[in-house]
Design a protein around this nucleic acid. Sequence first.
DNA 1: TCAGATCACCGC
DNA 2: AAACGCGGTGATCTGA
Length: 388
Amino acid sequence: MSVELTARLRQTEREIQEIAGYAFNINSTQQLSDVLFGKLGLPTAGLKKTQAGAYSTAADVLEGLRGKHEIVDLILEQRQLSKLLSTYVDALPNMINSRTGRVHTSYNQTGAETGRLSSTNPNLQNIPVRTDIGREIRRAFVAEPGWLLLSADYSQVELRILAHISGDEYLLAAFGRGEDIHASAAAKVYGVPLSQVTKEQRAVGAVAKMMNFATSYGVTAYGLAQRTGLSRSDAEDFLQRYFATYPGVRRYIEETKATAREQGYVETLLGRRRYFPVLRTTANTQQAYNIRMAAERAAINHPIQGTAADIIKIAMIRLHRALAERGSRARMILQVHDELVLETPEQELAATASLVRETMEAAYDLKAALKVDVEAGPNWYEMEAVGG
DNA sequence: TCAGATCACCGC
DNA sequence: AAACGCGGTGATCTGA
């Protein structure tokens, strides 16, 4: 992959330099900004700036400039190739332990404010999956001969936790019926039959984004407009309809903000606290206001993201014991926030899959019951569903 | 030469 | 007026 990607990268860089008219370092955001907005004169009206005052060359900015100049797509391609090459393809082989022949990550148990683990040296919680070319990297993560990798991930765990904590009857009902939750939401928000909306993938996609922002971020009309391309007023209208559809979600957000302000902290379902002293201050500057708004969003997020972290930790402890009790040779090798990856002898696949699914699903009793999808294969790329 | 800040971008 | 939650890594830039 290194040879192939390097060749593609060099070619893309040659084309960029050709258009610019001179050689420059494309990895330098300063030099790139000069080329795009100086030399080539791309429009800068309303464009985001960096802290240092230069016009930003971030991907979301460049996305907005596609079609304005042929160089934009080439820059985006260069960025993707460069990232994959430097962070993964060229870096990971150097981190193989010579004694074990494997890469070994370090997990930090106390690094994330919400109770999540983090992973370093190398970070194995951010291996590419989103793009076809990035996903190829997962072929490098292989099981021993005669063994398989088994991946088990919680299906929509944060949304299920939101349904449980908020008690929203419509969200709980949709999970109870086992519906495609995003299609179901789109049907309710747009007021059309579920059968019709499942064909309207754009509507489903918009609602899916909405749900994610609502659960993870604390949503604003501005942010929604930015991310979806909706106009500001359409975004506000959409938000109104969304909250009218799921009144329990709005209640959760308002109550969580009030709790954080009054107590100075919020908790996960299992009692993991996160403190927000800044929400008890009243400084009246724009900056102080922005900081408080950011803290409110983090407070809305903590009980959800933190509960998911608590739940998977319980599952990991129980699974480790359960494997030992059964004398299984399978072992846990990775945790990626809502996913556990194990290595299992091929002959034990069915038994391991059942044990993992049952242990993970029983880790916590939510009103929207936990659901786990299991897949297995010879490497982290070629995975096929197991049971379910 | 090196540490720290900045920018950008990978994952959930 | 300004702007989304939680992390880590690599390349570049800056300043000691």
